[in-house]
Design a protein around this nucleic acid. Structure first.
Lengths: 257, 257
DNA sequence: AATTTATTCGTACGGCGTACGAGTCGTATG
DNA sequence: CATACGACTCGTACGCCGTACGAATAAATT
């Protein structure tokens, strides 16, 4: 007997601390901020009195470390044990703050998509420039963390993504896009950014593996003359192409505004 | 380098048979292999040979079964042992035909992206309709296999994807899009389709899990008024929105043709 | 008959996510 | 002061995964 009075399902009291907005500086550089990861095999008799209070774990620290790890090792390179190591903690300690690995992915993805807003003042009349800046920043954020593109299709929309959508929606609305066209316009732009990022991400992996795999699948005899002639896959001015295509799209949107 | 298929590295002779397109009825035979895990010392001088000649494995069968499995269980639900089971084979038998699991993903993804071509005759003057059909079919193919969206960002481009790009490139070229704008136009359309598919895929998962996750991340107090007012996330006429946005984009492309 | 080649598959290994419960520590309460 | 408790950490263990390795077998060739 001695049944626990807790719910039928495993219902652990998890923290899920909702901290406002962290992500102070976006750090992609070689940030090796791990304090000291004291190996656990050290004699436990010593140092029973910690000279400094250990910072302990927190959701924010976990997410930050996860992003760091994802940046350097990719989606498949994120392992719970390694993440814990980098934080100087035991693997299972993470699970007090986080429900499971999926939640780490969710939080890491959303944390990377925070938007600081346009540099100008609000109420700008230049809605086209505003949209441009917003979408370029969006793409830049995701390109800075290429794993975000491969995570996006499988994850729910977090608050930062929704905020971006909200902002985009606002701008277009202020620009006078008809209500009937608004949603389609938003999706067009959203789709364009996501697609551009995904495309780019699939070209950015290690060149060695990529060319080998491509050769195998492609077969050496076949060619794609039009593609080859236009250097579609070889031209690497991705930024320019992105801007140009966005121009096309906005041209299509503009007449209805 | 790498001129011959033989290399200094461990280089097993793998088949990699390239055959066109085949989708015979697949079967999930009641193969209840109950191999009593008896050590070799168990009296087994009796040669228990297979009563039937096995149809054996083939790359095509493996890929077809993988697609089936991906359709029903999703990306994380594809396991090598299960895939082999479904083919009535031992797990390790797969590895004669396939280098590793990644290759299964590559092949499954590309196999799903084959394009049958437009229904009309070639040389149509209606390039806009042609592009429309091509992109709608593209999207439909990926939506029929939602896992394709999440696989795309991490995989190389296979022959079927390249063929689609080639065809698109051709159509736009025939339509008179300036060479200087061609690549940007192609990427615009490609990005749009991919983005639309990814977006859709991220909304199509189990509603239960999705709403729960979204609630947790969103926080119940915050709202996104503009989004909410426009019913952006609630309106589920995805097909209509896709067409409308594509119209916008083509409007933007058209003046330059 | 002997050898080679093509193919299948049993076993085993290391690594993963994480369930479970014991351990630690600061504070609130008697 | 003793005790209890809640917040938090972590060692161990389990089941599952991809796949390295090499033995087994059938068909083709010599």
């Amino acid at each position: 007997m001695a049944a626990k009075p807790s719910g039928p399902q495993g219902d652990r009291p998890r923290r899920l601390r909702a901290s406002p907005q962290s992500a102070p500086p976006q750090s992609a550089p070689p940030q090796s901020a791990s304090p000291e990861s004291a190996p656990p095999e050290s004699g436990s008799s010593e140092s029973l009195e910690g000279p400094r209070t250990e910072p302990s774990l927190s959701l924010d620290r976990i997410v930050a470390a996860a992003v760091e790890l994802l940046d350097t090792r990719g989606v498949d390179g994120l392992k719970m044990r390694q993440l814990a190591d980098r934080l100087g903690a035991g693997a299972m300690s993470l699970y007090w703050h986080v429900e499971n690995k999926e939640m780490v992915f969710d939080l890491a993805l959303d944390s990377v998509l925070a938007y600081r807003g346009p540099p100008q003042k609000a109420e700008s009349r230049d809605w086209r420039g505003e949209v441009f800046h917003m979408l370029e920043d969006w793409r830049a954020s995701m390109l800075r963390h290429p794993w975000s593109a491969s995570l996006l299709p499988r994850r729910a929309l977090g608050p930062n993504i929704l905020s971006r959508l909200e902002l985009l929606s606002n701008t277009l609305s202020r620009a006078g896009v008809a209500d009937a066209d608004l949603n389609a316009a938003i999706w067009s732009l959203w789709n364009y950014v996501i697609g551009a990022t995904v495309t780019r991400a699939s070209f950015v992996l290690s060149d060695e593996d990529r060319s080998v795999a491509q050769q195998r699948l492609t077969g050496l005899g076949e060619h794609y003359p039009t593609i080859e002639r236009s250097r579609l896959l070889l031209d690497d001015d991705w930024d320019g192409a992105f801007r140009k295509g966005l121009d096309f799209l906005l041209d299509g949107l503009a007449p209805r505004s």
